[in-house]
Amino acid sequence: MKHIITAFVFAGLLMSCNSSDKTKTTLQESDTAETTTEATPAKTNKALQAIDSDDALIATALMAAPESSRANCKVIGYNMAGEFVTLKEGDNEFIVLADDPNKNGFSAACYHKDLEPFMARGRALKAEGKKHQEIFDIREEEMKAGKFNITSGATLHIYSGPKAEYDPETAKVDGAKLRYVVYLPWATAASTGLPEAPVASNHPWIMNPGTHRAHIMISPLSDESH
């Protein structure tokens, strides 16, 4: 009987050792796999290039415009030499403002030509050294005085992102997305039924309600790519 009990005890110890060895082996394999994953370098898109020429500035800026209208848009903005110029002539209803190559990230905008006096006034005041709130207040008073007008429903298309690299085949900027601003001067939450803060991505809301710069904001979905 003692021999039988001894045999069972020995067998139990053997099984326990084997189980321990398997557990250790599994953990070691898991650690190795995690280490291997962490050590794998992230893949880079070799097709992307820096936006480092006037042609690249024009191509990427036009991504802010509706696709069917891009060929005939006028493009303005800073060239690679740092001069504010007309980069491309156009004859349709849109003006496109190119990215400023001297600033981090990327931001281009497209808007109806009727908004140009308002936009140009903002650029002029900024060039004079005026701050954001000063520009806002000055243009508010000038709007009230009838010096210029913002057509209700005029839309600003903004194509922006944190990077300044693009695919030269498609002109798409890496990580850039579109958002929209629809101007409704003097509108309020009460007059439009819109909230004054975003409920979720891609949901409209009203910003600067009750002012000359009241507008509907529509931001992109977080996983949307352009």
Score class of each variant (00 low, 15 high):
Glu29Trp: 02
Ala64Arg: 13
Pro168His: 12
Phe10Ala: 15
Pro195Cys: 05
Phe94Asn: 10
Ala59Gln: 13
Gln49Pro: 00
Lys2Asp: 08
Glu134Met: 10
Asn79Cys: 05
Ala61Lys: 05
Ala64Leu: 06
Thr211Glu: 01
Thr60Val: 06
Asn104Leu: 08
Val75Glu: 11
Thr170Leu: 07
Lys126Trp: 05
Ile135Glu: 07
Asn202Ile: 01
Lys163Leu: 11
Tyr159Trp: 07
Ser201His: 11
Ala81Glu: 15
Cys17Lys: 03
Pro195Glu: 09
Trp186Leu: 10
Thr86Ile: 13
Ala59Thr: 04
Ser107Phe: 02
Pro195His: 02
Arg213Gly: 04
Met1Tyr: 01
Met217Arg: 11
Gly193Pro: 10
Lys177Gln: 11
His132Val: 06
Ile4Ala: 12
Ala171Pro: 02
Ile138Arg: 05
Pro168Leu: 12
Cys17Arg: 07
Ala120Met: 11
Lys43Asp: 04
Phe84Asn: 07
His157Glu: 04
Ala164Trp: 01
Glu83Leu: 07
Asn79Ala: 07
Leu178Glu: 02
Lys113Pro: 03
Ser20Glu: 09
Pro162His: 02
Glu142Ala: 12
Ala171Asn: 15
Ala47Asp: 12
Ala61Cys: 08
Tyr111Thr: 04
Lys2Pro: 01
Gln28Cys: 01
Glu116Asp: 14
Pro66Met: 12
Thr188Phe: 07
Val199Phe: 05
Lys113Trp: 05
Lys147Ala: 06
Thr26Met: 09
Asp174Glu: 13
Ala47Met: 04
Ala42Ser: 13
His212Asn: 14
Ala189Pro: 00
Ala200Val: 03
Ser160Thr: 08
Glu67Gln: 09
Lys144Val: 13
Gly161Glu: 07
Ala200Gln: 12
Ala42Thr: 13
Tyr159Met: 05
Ala190Gly: 02
Ala187Asn: 03
Arg121Cys: 00
Ser160Cys: 05
Ser20Ile: 03
Gly90Met: 08
Ala190Cys: 00
His212Arg: 05
Thr211Gln: 04
Thr86Met: 08
Thr35Gln: 11
Asn72Pro: 00
Ile150Val: 15
Thr188Cys: 04
His132Lys: 14
Asn18Leu: 12
Met207Ala: 13
Gly153His: 11
Ala98Arg: 06
Asn202Ala: 15
Gly161Pro: 07
Pro198Leu: 05
Gly193Phe: 04
Leu27His: 09
Pro185Arg: 09
Ala33Tyr: 13
Glu142Trp: 15
Glu165Lys: 14
Leu27Gln: 15
Lys103Gly: 00
Arg123Ala: 09
Arg139Thr: 10
Ser219Phe: 10
Ala214Val: 03
Arg123Lys: 12
Gly105Lys: 03
Phe8Trp: 06
Gln133Ile: 12
Gly175Pro: 02
Ala47Pro: 00
Met207Ile: 00
Trp186Phe: 14
Leu125Gly: 01
Ala47Gly: 01
Met1Phe: 03
Leu125Ala: 12
Ala71Pro: 00
Cys110Trp: 08
Asn104Thr: 12
Thr170Trp: 11
Thr36Cys: 02
Met143Tyr: 15
Pro185Leu: 10
Gln49Leu: 15
Thr6Trp: 02
Lys46Asp: 15
Ala197Tyr: 09
Thr37Gly: 01
Leu194Phe: 09
Thr35Ala: 15
Leu62Thr: 08
Ala200Gly: 00
Ala190Thr: 14
